[in-house]
Design a protein around this nucleic acid. Structure first.
Lengths: 204, 204
DNA sequence: CGATCCGTATGACATCTGTCATCCGGCGGT
DNA sequence: ACCGCCGGATGACAGATGTCATACGGATCG
């Protein structure tokens, strides 16, 4: 090849990040030119290193890999984006695609798919698990409104209605109403289940 | 050296597992002789490959890395055990040590510590993050009884009292009593918070 | 043997949660 | 101009949840 593919690695757990770097280091057409541990460091690193492909974990401090992807997509439209995640949540796939991702991989896929995906996106292909794609389409869009999501997110840690009302500057009754409609939309029977299924679908 | 260290790698996410294998492959005194993706496959693999060190993730299907560690410790006392986890929960450290682990590493420690830990445990040393060790000691033992833990675990997904009573073969009142005492022991104000803090401490 | 803890259970009570009907103002379509 | 949806709110009601006192049998420890 004329020159190797320059890759940025964004992943907060250093052991995993460096292990992935070691893995990619075995491929002689791929070079890891930068590593970051936070979502909010991705954009600067992409700018600084003339990266061809950014490999982004979703769960990161600073900002999520999906947000980071959106920013890179806006500022550096030529950079290819591979989103890598522990959780194969259909909602994540959807948001990743909306953020401009070129590939979506789950961490329990075989390691060989990683280098392969990097080469494919550089060739202009998109890489998505077909099963996950089907699930994302079958499930439909997030039915929750922004406010309902916020309340649900705030309720996730077990806060009581009174606390939620205080922190969100709402009346206690309104909090109950939002939670009630969220519970109905998600077809579950209480807030705990609502939080659970919203999380599972990647809607939270 | 005379011969390389034989390592078993147990981790459910193949991408991470194979990446760690690549990382360890860079060390010329270490050889990954077996890889498994489930906790309940660890014991057999250890027996089959004459493993020197078993590297165990905690969160795995089949059984947890801690349970796997306990079994290996019982059946093959000579095998050194390194427990690796995403979550630096003091309760995990405690249980890992009780299960006979020789090292406890969190995945956001630098990758270099992994090979280092493997060599150290083989030399008879123990490897523990001092900060985490202090936290584990400071926090004290798990105050929950076995039954309280079970009920809390079952309640974690948002099941109602009636459902819990059915699945655990208890009266509804008894379920409430257990949850109530758990809530008081954890000094929180409802079951959701109880689940949350018990999880955080690694007590669940 | 008594003290203490655990598992299990009941009943009564207070509070929290979830539902429903209803209302208001604002904003985006048609 | 009107309809429908969203954010926000109230009040009433039923059911779920959390607390407390109390009880009994078994285990364990002194």
């Amino acid at each position: 090849m004329t020159s190797s593919i320059k890759v940025l690695l964004a992943e907060d757990q250093s052991m995993v990040r460096e292990a992935l770097a070691a893995l990619l280091g075995l491929e002689d057409d791929i070079e890891v030119v930068a590593q970051v541990a936070r979502g909010d460091e991705v954009l600067a690193a992409v700018g600084a290193h003339g990266v061809d492909v950014a490999l982004l974990d979703i769960e990161m401090p600073g900002c999520t890999g999906i947000e980071a992807a959106a920013r890179v997509h806006r500022e550096h439209p030529g950079v290819k984006l591979v989103v890598l995640t522990t959780f194969g949540r259909p909602g994540y796939l959807r948001s990743a695609m909306e953020a401009g991702a070129d590939a979506f991989l789950v961490k329990d896929a075989p390691a060989a798919q990683l280098a392969e995906a990097i080469r494919k996106v550089l060739a202009g292909e998109r890489v998505i698990d077909p099963t996950l794609a089907a699930a994302a389409l079958a499930e439909g869009a997030n039915p929750l409104t922004e406010r309902e999501r916020e309340v649900l997110r705030a309720a996730a840690d077990g806060s009581t209605n009174a606390e939620l009302a205080r922190t969100l500057h709402l009346s206690q009754g309104t909090v109950r109403n939002y939670l009630s409609t969220a519970i109905q939309k998600l077809a579950v029977r209480n807030r705990a289940e609502a939080v659970r299924t919203a999380r599972e679908k990647g809607w939270l």
